[in-house]
Design a protein around this nucleic acid. Structure first.
Lengths: 239, 239
DNA sequence: CGTAAGGTTGAATATGTTCAACTTGGGTGG
DNA sequence: CCACCCAAGTTGAACATATTCAACCTTACG
């Protein structure tokens, strides 16, 4: 990890995010004033309780006694990180899933900030509503969808990330390692691969030979239907 | 559904909840002033976007095209309900999972209320942090635990509900139908039953003959170990 | 050049689901 | 008061499918 003191460094990405753009300029300054920007590399533990993702990705990793691990939530640029809780001790640990930069601050400092700037409360609520909504969608994916459907669902989720849709609309640049995608989708890397192969064999996606983590979504309509659990759990049975 | 205008009706339960008790008396009055209490019976659609659970249980139900359904999140007394979101249309629908009473209000009214009472923002954040924490725990349960472990995990979650722990500490009164517990745990009722039987056969729980939904947790230490994914996914293999 | 980590593949295994049949309890109407 | 129905819940057997394990390939890196 690496501390930075120049706001300029992370400006380009954060300007694009919803939370940040909803804030008045003076609120942005107030937040930055209380915060510290920290950089992490892939695999680094991210030892913060409260903060704002500036760029990159990190994930909340849970693990159980026998060693199994899962990625419970993904944080991308613009996301608020808040791990505090009262009824139980905070579970899991934040890990950087690639290079990432986080603007971190005390939860109480944020409270204080919010007291003087009403727009911060509004933006905070809007952002949290979206993140909770994503969490709920993800619960649904895990609860009743097949691995194939889950993968497609996750692909669509990643497609909404600012970093992922760099090129054409149908092109998707995976911002995560395959094993992390699998951990997030609640399956093993092998299962992820088999599901991807099914999609590839059905001509729904195309994997780039040059660039490992570039994927082309060919048939968006069918993919959307699969992600929504449309009728069939398997590609072969699709009409 | 049924509207009520007397605050006295729901006072007993809500007084016990964390969110409510964190509020100053004048904040409580301000919230009640803007709100309407509505009652629902088992199975009723709960057509609200923002509100506070006063008593009973309701759940956020997702369904996919082919008819599969899951309960993504459970709301119990004291919980805040907020289904709004911006990046995607709100998914799923609230359903009453038994008799329940909800204090409902406009999200904007709440914002306005919060602007004049700083303690509301604090209490709101604390409550949401807990609910998001529960959601994260649940994601972890679904992502990497076996049905057996998930069930035990859910039992512990239900044990923290104010309604469930009526009698002795080891006694648990299920506030939900079995099929709803199964839907929440991401499995079929049959799988739920088989997991319960394993627990019963291993003398970890006892099911009351008189009262269908009363369960006695016999060996809390072992159950806790199972819920945490301790080493073995199956009861038989436990040390 | 050798190691380590991510990723892929196949075969055997374990395990959750499906389906149908059945029981039970609560409600309704004759 | 009883017959009837419906929904919730239960059980067993057949089935579908994700995981496991091992081997292997590839790339990045020292």
């Amino acid at each position: 990890m690496n501390e930075m003191d120049t706001a300029a460094r992370f400006a380009p990405w954060i300007e694009l995010t919803r939370f940040w753009s909803e804030l008045e300029p003076q609120s942005q300054e107030a937040l930055i004033g209380d915060a510290t920007a920290v950089e992490y590399a892939l695999g680094d533990p991210v030892d913060i309780q409260f903060g704002l993702m500036v760029s990159g990705t990190c994930g909340l990793e849970y693990s159980v006694d026998d060693g199994r691990r899962s990625l419970v939530e993904l944080f991308r640029s613009g996301d608020l990180i808040d791990l505090a809780r009262r009824e139980r001790r905070p579970q899991g640990a934040l890990v950087a899933l690639g290079y990432c930069c986080v603007l971190t601050m005390g939860s109480d400092d944020f409270d204080l900030c919010a007291r003087h700037h009403a727009d911060i409360v509004r933006a905070y609520r809007h952002q949290m509503e979206d993140q909770v909504g994503r969490l709920r969608d993800h619960v649904n994916d895990l609860a009743l969808k097949s691995p194939l459907e889950r993968i497609v669902s996750v692909l669509f989720e990643l497609r909404r990330w600012p970093e992922a849709s760099a090129g054409e609309a149908s092109e998707l640049v995976l911002p995560l390692l395959r094993k992390h995608i699998a951990a997030y989708a609640g399956m093993k890397p092998e299962t992820l691969r088999r599901a991807m192969r099914k999609l590839r064999d059905a001509d729904l996606i195309r994997e780039s030979r040059m660039d490992e983590d570039k994927i082309e979504l060919i048939d968006l309509a069918t993919l959307r239907r699969i992600a929504n659990g449309g009728r069939a759990r398997d590609v072969k049975r699709m009409g």
